[in-house]
């Protein structure tokens, strides 16, 4: 077996590396080599409202559709988005507050599919939409980050369906920058950073939306201050 200390390839690679580094002074410890971090931790000072506005602008720049709602309007908004899409089957992971989708389901002819381990990729492929929350959003880059926490589900449920509706609580879930985002995230969780719908520039460098991930990304900014 490989991967353990008696692996000859491992010993060989490590020995080569150590020989290659003969010029590094013996007293230099890992971490001694200086890293000047003179770069900015955020690019500009913003109020909470400006931060949210920048997030919206950057999301739209990469062709996500952005909606705003207070808690009271959210159910109607989500129902409308799913109806407009003609969604009949919608995946909803555990932890999505039931009131969000109070208007969907009964009577609307929409089947809510829970994200269970038994949900196969084939079944998932026949789902029309997915509604999730997120861990945080990054204003400067227009990025949503999902970490598998409550209301986010397994990574595959935001990948296979063609329509993703993601709810961001603003302003509390919005950070300015990538450095701030990393500081808030837990590396031991599986993380998915999403900046706009999937895209490719592989054909003569034209950005084309939608290759394998959801081709439509709708973001709802849920205003925590509104009723």
């Amino acid at each position: 077996m490989t991967g353990r200390p008696h692996d000859p390839a491992r010993e060989r690679v490590l020995a080569r590396i150590r020989r290659a580094l003969a010029d590094v002074p013996r007293h230099e410890r890992p971490g001694d080599h200086p890293v000047p971090r003179a770069y900015a931790l955020t690019h500009g000072e913003r109020t909470a409202a400006e931060r949210v506005a920048l997030l919206a602008a950057h999301l739209e720049d990469y062709r996500a559709t952005v909606h705003r709602a207070g808690a009271a309007e959210l159910p109607e908004l989500l129902t409308g988005l799913l109806r407009r899409r003609g969604a009949r089957r919608v995946v909803v992971p555990a932890g999505v507050p039931p009131e969000w989708l109070a208007g969907v389901g009964a009577g609307a002819g929409v089947e809510m599919v829970p994200d269970t381990p038994g949900l196969t990729t084939g079944e998932l492929d026949r789902v029309d939409s997915v509604v999730t929350g997120c861990a945080l959003a990054v204003a400067e880059t227009g990025t949503l980050v999902l970490d598998g926490g409550p209301g986010q589900g397994r990574r595959r449920i935001t990948l296979v369906p063609d329509h993703h509706v993601c709810v961001v609580r603003v302003p509390s879930q919005v950070v300015d920058s990538v450095p701030q985002a990393l500081g808030r995230l837990d590396p031991l969780r599986p993380l998915t950073w999403i900046s706009g719908p999937s895209a490719t520039s592989d054909i003569e460098l034209d950005r084309v939306e939608g290759v394998h991930g959801p081709r439509t990304l709708e973001v709802v900014l849920l205003d925590e201050a509104a009723p």
């Binding site: 595959r156 990538v178 969780r189 599986p190 993380l191 998915t192 900046s195 706009g196």
Partner: peptide, 27 residues
């Protein structure tokens, strides 16, 4: 911050995945 801007000229590329070992029930 450097890679997406330098390679595809985007503020951020559409998807980035980060994983640490395996996660029960996901992936």
């Amino acid at each position: 911050q450097l890679l997406p801007r330098s390679s595809t000229a985007e503020r951020m590329n559409p998807y980035t995945t980060m994983w640490t070992g395996t996660t029960d029930g996901d992936g």
